[in-house]
């Protein structure tokens, strides 16, 4: 075969259109995953063993099953489940499937963020008599969120690259557009290359941006050593 720029130009509008669907779906899935991840994190903090066990099992189950299987199940099998089964359109299915899958990882990120806050911070907040709400909003979350931002960013990029899975249930994203173009013209190389280039053009700058964010939040204050017990030398030097 030979590379044909004509096919590139011809498939470009189709794929460009598909890109918006891919992007929109990524954002939709991610928003769902972030919201639902919060629900998981909250459920896991309920201090009652049976709830923790059940939630732990459900999370493990979702994480250990391939997202493609989950998408197929939701799309093809769910409507046939008696009583609760409903037919879902591809987009809803994609948001529930991929968003649900990633929500389990995101819940883990939230948890690690909360746990990264030193126990002494909780104790000091209690000693100052802050209400439970103010403890979270003024003391814990401002310290728990920044370190999660780069991790969330990484998952956003990973999810972006998983969105083409939804082509299998008929979501008309970039991959689907390329496939359609190929089946009509028998030219697959050009549109698929174009899809890859699109993905690269969006993923790479995002990754760079996230690395910058990471550096910024690490600079803001000393994460590894929140109370700064071992930073006396540096402190003295700054004061001197």
């Amino acid at each position: 075969m030979t590379w044909s720029w004509n096919y590139v130009w011809d498939s470009f509008p189709l794929i460009f259109e598909g890109m918006w669907i891919t992007l929109g779906l990524t954002i939709g899935c991610f928003a769902f995953a972030m919201a639902f991840g919060f629900v998981w994190t909250f459920l896991r903090r309920i201090p009652w063993k049976p709830v923790q066990k059940v939630v732990g099992f459900v999370l493990e189950f979702i994480r250990s099953t391939p997202p493609l299987v989950q998408l197929f199940f939701l799309f093809y099998a769910w409507p046939m489940v008696p009583y609760v089964g409903v037919t879902l359109d591809p987009i809803t299915c994609a948001v529930l499937g991929l968003g649900g899958h990633f929500s389990t990882y995101i819940s883990e990120i939230y948890r690690s963020g909360i746990e990264s806050v030193d126990k002494g911070q909780w104790e000091a907040s209690t000693a100052l008599n802050l209400s439970t709400r103010k403890k979270w909003t003024k003391i814990i979350l401002p310290q728990a969120i920044p370190p999660t931002i780069p991790m969330l960013g990484n998952y956003l990029i990973i999810m972006f690259k998983e969105v083409p899975l939804t082509a299998t249930i008929g979501v008309t994203g970039m991959l689907h557009a390329a496939e359609t173009f190929g089946s009509q013209t028998f030219a697959y190389v050009e549109p698929l290359t174009l899809v890859a280039v699109f993905f690269l053009a969006m993923s790479y700058p995002s990754a760079v941006l996230i690395r910058k964010l990471e550096a910024k939040y690490n600079r803001r204050f000393d994460k590894k050593n929140p109370t700064g017990t071992n930073k006396m030398d540096k402190g003295v030097a700054l004061n001197g």
């Binding site: 002494g120 000091a124 209690t126 008599n129 803001r220 204050f221 109370t227």
Partner: peptide
């Protein structure tokens, strides 16, 4: 608890 105040061994200042 409002009548009680405490200073800790490891300071526990709010780093942010």
């Amino acid at each position: 608890r409002g009548d009680i105040g405490m200073v800790f061994q490891h300071f526990n200042l709010f780093p942010h």
